[in-house]
Write a protein that binds this DNA or RNA. Structure first.
Lengths: 250, 250
DNA sequence: TTTTTTCATTTGTCAGACAATTAAAAGTCT
DNA sequence: AGACTTTTAATTGTCTGACAAATGAAAAAA
């Protein structure tokens, strides 16, 4: 049924995990189907149960399977939900950004490039509900008592509504990772009263454009927001360099 | 140092993995730093070594750590490469598309929306090397003996060069997942001689536009390619429905 | 000093055991 | 018969202990 490559130098759990993963991805195991028990798998692959367990844990870490204890328990092929996929994407993106020292400029550019693509679609398809979410987030952002973190969170919610306005779950999924992963970077930026007002005004321009289904205005507002966000980032970086003399970009 | 939430109902390896992952993501463990040995971790978390091992395997499955045997071996924080991130993104995206029955239309729309965003940047930044890659892929696609799979692979290579032309690794990373994940769907489409010629002509238009740094022409060529790809998809779906009477969208 | 050997450390794998959980089967009462 | 309770078997979760394999470092020999 399943076979291992005995010539491979990879450790056994990896090989077993790969074999099962290939099985699932090829469609030989469908969603909610039960895998053989750990003991049976151990027999099939001719390894011990702990080895099989490690392989299953690897798959569980990727949300490919879920396990259940009990009489009719076992490992089941998991229907990957968009939510779980978000989580993984965010984890991966966050690490990529933090470890590969992607510059704020690069991350910003990618984010707004994707958002502009969404805005073009959203200007056609946005629902009233999404407009009202954006409106209420703008109202929240105007609260002077808001902490920087809360301001950023509201910002994320606003942009999320914008992205969802495109009505394309694949785009929402792709972008969610980028936006969320950028939040630690965004949090490092200090939002003065003046910069908050500027951002809110730009948000309002985006909202108005979407309300009027004007893709061109939405795009130009996003371009301006892109440029403004980058200038804020540059400011923070230069200030820090002046203060510490470091050249880190992370 | 590290603590577990004893009130959580999640299994121990999950909690341990989360604790270590949070440690890494917070920057308390930097790249290439060595984690305590499995025995030491077992003592710290007050669990047995196999339990720790399962936790480490989960992290290894996410490419967060790598392990090495031997005297000075152990688990080390892994520098997540874009390549590894690609792999994970592709796995996740493929499963999402295959299991959540995203329609061909939706996937197509997302893909070309992202590509158009890249093309705008690529028209400014593309290098001669990327242009030559695109040119040679077009030449390959003109070979009538090419199998459909090889044609698709060449198509992916062409679009990859286009995306890389944007010079933004974050965008490349985001899009790689979408494009690769769509390949199984694309492979299902039968490419007639006529459709191949049409696609090649559109590729040529894109190449010419990028060569002349004309963002507008590149965009309109991609819009046309988007529309043409979707029409091919609709054709295949309607033919299949007529033949089998199924209404599946996957 | 250079090479070889030995050794301690660490992960990889295994075997076996017991606990916790759960659904189904068996039993019991009305 | 039907509803409820108890038992039971299956399965994963976790632990203990052990040995193999790899590997770098220290010790010994040339």
């Amino acid at each position: 049924m399943k076979k291992l490559d005995s010539t491979s130098k990879a450790d056994l759990p990896s090989q077993i995990a790969k074999a099962i993963r290939d099985f699932i991805m090829a469609g030989d195991l469908i969603v909610d189907e039960r895998l053989p028990s750990e003991s049976e798998l151990a027999d099939q692959f001719d390894v011990s149960r702990p080895t099989v367990r490690e392989a299953l844990k690897r798959l569980a870490a990727q949300s490919l399977i879920r396990t259940q204890r009990g009489a009719s328990g076992g490992a089941f092929v998991n229907r990957l939900s968009f939510e779980e996929a978000y989580g993984q994407q965010i984890t991966t993106s966050t690490l990529l950004l933090s470890m590969n020292a992607v510059s704020f400029e690069t991350a910003c550019e990618a984010r707004y490039a994707l958002e502009r693509a969404c805005a073009a679609l959203a200007s056609q398809r946005r629902t009233d509900k999404q407009l009202s979410v954006m409106k209420s987030e703008i109202a929240r952002q105007a609260d002077a008592d808001l902490t920087d973190e809360a301001f950023c969170a509201s910002d994320v919610a606003f942009h999320r509504a914008l992205v969802d306005g495109a009505g394309n779950p694949v785009l929402s999924y792709q972008l969610a990772g980028a936006v969320e992963a950028m939040q630690p970077l965004m949090n490092m930026i200090t939002f003065t009263e003046r910069s908050r007002a500027t951002i809110i005004a730009l948000h309002q321009r985006i909202l108005d454009a979407l309300r009027n289904r004007d893709a061109g205005l939405a795009d130009s507002a996003l371009v301006d927001l892109d440029e403004y966000t980058r200038s804020l980032g540059r400011e923070v970086v230069s200030k820090r360099q002046a203060r510490t003399g470091t050249t880190s970009t992370a």
